[in-house]
Amino acid sequence: MTTTAPPDPRESRVLSRVLGSPSVRLIGKRVLMAVPIILGVSILTFWVLSLIPGNAAQQVLGPDATAAQVRALEQELGLDQPAVTRYLDWLGGAVQGDLGNSLISGQPVSGELGSRLAVTGELVGLAFVISIGLAVPVALLAAYKPNRLVDRISMVVSITGLSVANYVLALLLVLVFAVQMTVFPAIGFVPLSEGVGANLHSLALPAAAIAFPLFCFYTRFLRGDLVDQMQGEDYIVTARAKGIGPWRVLLRHAFRNSSFGLITVVGLNLGTLIGSTVIIEQIFALPGIGQLLLQAINTRDFIVVQACVVVFAIIAVLANLVADLLYAVLDPRIRYGSR
């Protein structure tokens, strides 16, 4: 590798091979690109929230507060400082995990966020597992014989499902399964520590409300991509000419290629998905981060709002990043930069 022999040539060769490998370089580049986006998102949040007309301190104290009280709170919160100083102060704390204290409860925000993130995370994770677990087999069945009965039904269901707002679906589920049939609870959350069964039971309806539109979206996307692959690609013709059975061509050849697209779409979706948990958590009274955000918005606790929005945004950026990386690691064409 190099002319001057290092202490342990074998180790250095491994290191340089790892650092020089296209995957690692690409991962490094993408991670570096995510940093300015996260910074930009936090600046944007800060900026938008500082546009709030009226005085934040006045709003916290209420209309009866005297001018002196307002000024004292402003000083305490640092609101009398210029916006740039405040942002840098906040950023300095944020990178150390300190997102400030709630204006209402006085408790540190980061502690509260942690426990709530777990609830939201479980909800989103469950919705993902359900939607992808159902979408993949349905899309495969539909693409096996395009324009036949199964395909037609799945297309009608998916375009219909995409037109149902998740809050409409949530209320419909509550109406049928909680009010009429009383199979599932209408509201409330049972933590995982009180048993997996009870926990899943309490999350079944909200997870279904989030999962169904997603299932429709993924089915539609994957089916379209699979049909495109099966009809137009040379490697499919080759595989068929070799005498490989139709299911095997679909599963091992076409699906493998289509799964890349699916990964990207899933990553892009996570941001919107996280946003939609706000309304679902509100309907089902789940103690997640969306509920915290809504409470904070209603009590004008801007420190908590800011923390929640930034956390939402960071999750969205990271999801995109992971999808990007997975895509790159799985697809050699991207890894070697020929496309």
């Binding site: 944007l44 938008v48 929230l49 919107t272 996280i274 939609s276 209603n298 945004a313 969205a316």
Partner: peptide
């Protein structure tokens, strides 16, 4: 802007 979960910030903006 695209990275942003838009509903979330829209909520904050709408309230403010």
């Amino acid at each position: 802007l695209i990275a942003f979960p838009s509903l979330v910030l829209t909520l904050a903006v709408a309230q403010s």
